[in-house]
């Protein structure tokens, strides 16, 4: 299995619901719990597994704002794993999920420098590295209803811009969608071979118009004649 996420840039409204749901699930979870610093203080901040970036492109009328959620890509060839001196950072052979063993991590930051996607954040309270777990504690939990054995961010996305599934299975919904919509991985030139895929914005619908009036407004007014329309 090769598990990961598909994110649809055509419909992501940048609402941060996925980032907050991720926080909510993982802050009191057991796998790499993420910390808040002064959540009720003057300058709340903390660790995030998922951040939404916003980019503005081009000039009006061709401009576009792109909302770009980014979390760990669960790369096939992840240098974040190979550079880890303690072996805390590892990739699971059975499903491709990249995790950090919190008991082994010494917070040296090597992996975060090795990650080109900015997916890893050092937790200042625990002194260890944190990152997206693909909600491994949800997706295999047999006690959850089947339809809820999905990452928290996927379940919550109001625009249904997020999908989770197995990219090794050519018939899975994620594989099919990526084929149909020409999904792409980020920065392939770096050869990390990321698993997560992004769907590009769809092309704009073209709608024909049928102007009628050729003459001036006087002509327009003259055209208005009462028709016999019974109520």
């Amino acid at each position: 299995m090769r598990l990961g996420l598909v994110i649809d840039l055509d419909v992501c409204v940048g609402c941060h619901a996925c980032a907050i749901a991720c926080k909510e699930w993982n802050a009191s979870g057991t796998i790499g719990p993420l910390s808040d610093y002064q959540p009720y203080g003057a300058e709340p901040s903390g660790v995030w597994f998922n951040r939404i970036r916003h980019y503005e492109m081009d000039e009006y009328p061709n401009n576009k704002t792109v909302n770009f959620p980014m979390s760990c890509m669960h790369c096939e060839d992840a240098d974040c794993v190979t550079v880890c001196p303690t072996g805390a950072s590892y990739k699971r052979p059975e499903d491709g999920i990249v995790l950090i063993d919190q008991d082994k991590c010494m917070g040296c930051n090597y992996c975060s420098w090795a990650c080109p996607y900015g997916a890893r954040e050092l937790d200042r309270s625990s002194g260890t590295m944190k990152k997206c777990t693909l909600c491994v504690d949800r997706i295999y939990d047999q006690d959850l209803p089947v339809e809820e054995r999905q990452p928290s961010c996927v379940l919550t996305c109001p625009a249904h811009a997020r999908m989770f599934g197995d990219f090794d299975d050519p018939d899975s919904a994620v594989s099919r969608t990526v084929r149909e919509r020409s999904g792409f991985g980020l920065m392939p030139e770096l050869n990390y071979n990321p698993t997560n895929r992004y769907l590009p914005p769809r092309s704009k619908p073209v709608i024909p118009v049928e102007p009628k009036s050729k003459g001036g407004l006087k002509e327009s007014i003259k055209q208005f004649a009462n028709k016999l329309v019974r109520r």
């Binding site: 926080k23 699930w25 928290s152 109001p158």
Partner: peptide
């Protein structure tokens, strides 16, 4: 522990916005 959308509800059909999830932080404010 966790707040998520109710799939059967006519308004949100299972999804939840960022504020909805943050309700947990309001409870413990």
């Amino acid at each position: 522990r966790f707040i998520q959308g109710n799939r059967n509800h006519p308004t949100n059909q299972g999804v939840l916005c960022a504020k909805g999830s943050a309700g947990i932080m309001k409870q413990y404010s």
